[in-house]
Computed example of a mutant assay.
Amino acid sequence: MKKALIAMSGGVDSSVSAHLMIKRGYDCMGTTMRLYENDMIGEDLLSTCCSLKDTNDARSVCDKIGIPFKILHYENLFREEVMEDFVANYEAGLTPNPCIVCNKRFKFGRLIDKMEEFGMDYVVTGHYARIYYNEETKRYVLKKAVDLSKDQSYVLYNMSQEQLAHTIFPLGEYTKSEVREIALENDFVNAKKHESQDICFVPDGDYVAFMERFRKKSYEPGDFVDLKGNVIGKHKGYVHYTIGQRKGLGIAMGHPVFVVDINPKENKVVIGESEDLFNDTLIADNINLISVPDLYEPRKIKAKIRYAMTEQEATVRQLDDNRIEVKFDKPQRAITKGQAVVLYDGEDVVGGGRIIDIVRN
């Protein structure tokens, strides 16, 4: 009998994933990863996704479906590898996506290590995505979920072939409403539980307050400047801003203006017009390719530069072992350094990388 280690957050998705794996005949163990303590985020852990209630909900579901449950502690490593990375990227003028880092290093990194340590065959999570093996190319391929409104392939683009080979996403073929129905039918304690949309360690959404607690310092005010470098106002610290931001700037120009660039070295935030946000070419590093071994030959694909957008027509070419250039057919608004660009061929994820530069039009 194949054995599966189920990553359980205490939410409905991972709970139904565990249930489905039992129905498939797998020998399962549930596990919750403890990633931080309340003093690390300045919040009461009763109100966050690593809360005691969430842990108890996960344990309750495991008891109900008759599988063992284990808590794994990664607080110090999570602080070093995810929180530190998050803060350092913001301080470098980037806008990071910590979920992508966490997926690579913890959910499909250290959890797969634990899977092997426990003598198990697969890691299972409640992500909405699919995995299949392409016999022709001899590669594992990540696919979009059937429920495109819940598809999470964007934040999974960094998975390696080894990780894909040892991962199962039971919810990839289900809609969210079907998952809720399964949870209700089985009387799971979390069947109607609300989903969190925030970064797990910034549950109130105030990432600057988190950074100030993390660094034990405040960020210095600086200058708003226009595209020519003229000072047009004062900002409250460049980490407060991201590309495309319009609200909360605190400057009156007589018409809408936007953040078009961030200069951390000089503590300046560049302000421009809406049209100044549009560019068609970006460079990404830290690339990971899934469905193909390389992209040195230019290739037409679709790509998206943030989670909540529809992918757009583009051409990609690989520059070296670690970088790709993506040129969109039409200029895209607010391409943001630090975010991921993810490449698609139909339902398949070709790969992706971290945006590090924008070729200005």
Rank of each mutant, 00 (worst) to 15 (best):
I168C: 08
E43V: 04
I287G: 14
M159E: 13
G233Q: 03
T32I: 01
I131Q: 05
D27P: 06
R323E: 09
V225N: 08
A165M: 03
D345T: 03
D187M: 00
P298W: 13
A7V: 08
K107D: 07
G338F: 13
K216N: 15
L184F: 14
R139C: 04
A92Q: 06
V123P: 12
S17C: 09
L171A: 10
E347T: 04
E136K: 14
A209M: 02
H194P: 00
G109S: 07
D151M: 07
M8W: 14
F69E: 01
D226N: 15
K302R: 10
Q339M: 13
I100F: 13
D294R: 11
I22C: 14
K217F: 07
E311M: 00
F118I: 04
I305R: 01
I287R: 03
E75N: 14
P221V: 05
K114C: 09
D39N: 12
K217N: 10
V292K: 15
G10C: 03
P298Y: 06
F78A: 11
Y219F: 15
R246C: 06
F108M: 06
N288E: 09
Q332S: 12
D261G: 15
S160E: 09
S218P: 02
H73A: 08
L5K: 10
M40T: 09
G205L: 00
I112V: 12
N267L: 00
A209S: 14
C200K: 00
K265F: 10
R130L: 06
Y207V: 05
E266H: 13
R34I: 09
N89R: 10
H240M: 00
I356W: 07
R110I: 03
V239G: 10
D44K: 06
A209P: 02
M253E: 11
V12L: 08
R317F: 12
R105V: 01
P256Y: 15
V124R: 06
R215E: 04
S47L: 01
E162T: 15
